[in-house]
Design a protein around this nucleic acid. Structure first.
Lengths: 149, 149
DNA sequence: TTTGATGCAAATGGTTTGCATCGGG
DNA sequence: CCCGATGCAAACCATTTGCATCAAA
């Protein structure tokens, strides 16, 4: 079910799967549930073989273009990326719960917006190709420690 | 129905309503439907009396803190702000349709996420305080010119 | 007169770009 | 050999901050 690098290689077409690009991919495969920023990937890469930050940015652009990563904006001033698994859970098909206290990010697996999109498309004659949805609040862990809830 | 500056003055409490702050407010009142960035406000202010960009940033923070503006992130690399009208249409209560072709931004007035939030809160034990939702696609004007639709 | 507000310029932080170099096909 | 890929440093751009000055209570 889970994609491996070998399956991804075919997507590289005219591009070269260099050691740096492979390492970035490996980092995403080892952190499937995370939402990594360029800087975080840079730090993780140093454990194996350092890659220039500029190369990381260029690689992220490429991997997004190849449809392997999706770029997310949580409003924290940096772009984050996550692996597109099986072509199904790109950001169009799941959403994020962002805890304002501890910063933890959880995924909401199902896409709850289908009906909503239909309504909006009909009412505004607007053809939707993507959406962006985050919920900000307090996660179950942090709620437990808060007496006002 | 529409708020005027005079009604807003009372919200300034310990803060001074300086000419610069008043001008920024006026610009928002004259552009109720727009989603202005700091730079755009800066340009608009120059028509009357120039304000330093740093002052604009500080004023935007203040007006947000006072509950007069809400900050929105459309993922275009800059923060945008809109007037909170009657305390009702802050970003929690309406969403945006962003046209990928012409860049036009339309508002979706109703808050369609209430049921969704309930589901998410129950299922994930996550107490939501805010959300962020944009739809990207093609608006009615641009759709008309596209034969593939 | 005292404290908050302003404006300028410098600093910051994420991201991009120019360019010389490297290395696989 | 050639062209794409890399790495470094400089450039960029939105935003923030330090600091001297200004102005209203």
């Amino acid at each position: 079910m889970k994609k491996k690098i070998s399956e991804m290689e075919s997507q590289f077409k005219q591009y070269r799967l260099t050691p740096q690009r492979r390492l970035v991919l490996e980092i995403f495969l080892e952190n499937r549930e995370k939402h990594l920023s360029a800087e975080e990937i840079y730090q993780l890469s140093r454990q194996k073989e350092e890659i220039g930050l500029a190369t990381i940015y260029r690689t992220l652009d490429l991997l997004e273009e190849l449809g392997l990563l999706s770029k997310i904006n949580f409003g924290d001033g940096r772009s984050r990326y996550e692996l597109i698994q099986d072509g199904l859970n790109d950001t169009h098909n799941h959403h994020h719960l962002i805890c304002l206290n501890c910063g933890r990010i959880q995924e909401v697996e199902e896409d709850l917006l289908n009906k909503l999109e239909e309504i909006v498309e009909r009412k505004h004659h607007f053809s939707i190709v993507n959406h962006n949805l985050q919920f900000y609040g307090y996660c179950n862990r942090c709620n437990n420690g808060r007496k006002d809830l």
